[in-house]
């Protein structure tokens, strides 16, 4: 019972933070909700095996699950279509524009950006969380920033030339 209590407490405390990350990772409120639910379900299944702070475990599921969903989604083009459909709008608002630009990155690029600049993880920590090398993290990050710049010149001043 105490385990269930721990789990419930964790859910109440951390769901908002997880939701924010999930939203940034997916760019879609429904997918973000699915992602959080799935990650917490998987964490509950393995709760007895988690030692110490469960948050890194849950976050790792969040990141990797998103990538694997993206792999499964490749067969259907509806989600990409919906992003494209939204883009012709006048992007006077910088926030919208960033959101759209993020949607056009690959899932890996978006995930790395979110981990590095939203979660404020180091390159090494990002690499550990995704199971890739820190060199790979660096190069994906550089590609992602370059892509953002190309996609939306307005963002250039946001990102700057440094990378």
């Amino acid at each position: 019972m105490s385990r269930q209590h721990d789990f419930d407490a964790f859910v109440v405390a951390r769901t908002p933070a997880l939701s924010r990350t999930a939203y940034l990772l997916t760019g879609d409120a429904h997918l973000a909700e699915d992602l959080v639910q799935t990650a917490l379900f998987k964490a509950a299944k393995a709760w007895h095996r988690i030692e110490g702070d469960p948050e890194p475990y849950v976050r790792r599921i969040l990141y990797t699950q998103n990538v694997s969903w993206w792999r499964q989604r490749r067969l259907q083009e509806t989600s990409l279509g919906s992003y494209d459909g939204a883009s012709p709008g006048v992007d006077a608002d910088l926030r919208l524009s960033l959101e759209q630009a993020l949607a056009r990155l690959t899932t890996r690029q978006r995930t790395v950006l979110v981990l590095r600049y939203f979660e404020d993880l180091t390159e090494v920590q990002t690499g550990q969380a995704l199971g890739i090398g820190s060199g790979t993290v660096k190069s994906i990050c550089r590609q992602a920033l370059a892509r953002l710049r190309t996609l939306s010149p307005d963002l250039a001043e946001l990102i700057g030339d440094a990378s």
Binding site: S19, R20, Y23, L24, Q37, L98
Partner: peptide, 15 residues
Amino acid sequence: ELARLGDTAPVAQVD
């Protein structure tokens, strides 16, 4: 900007 964007995210309902 990312933080701001994140704050607009709805909190997921967990069953």
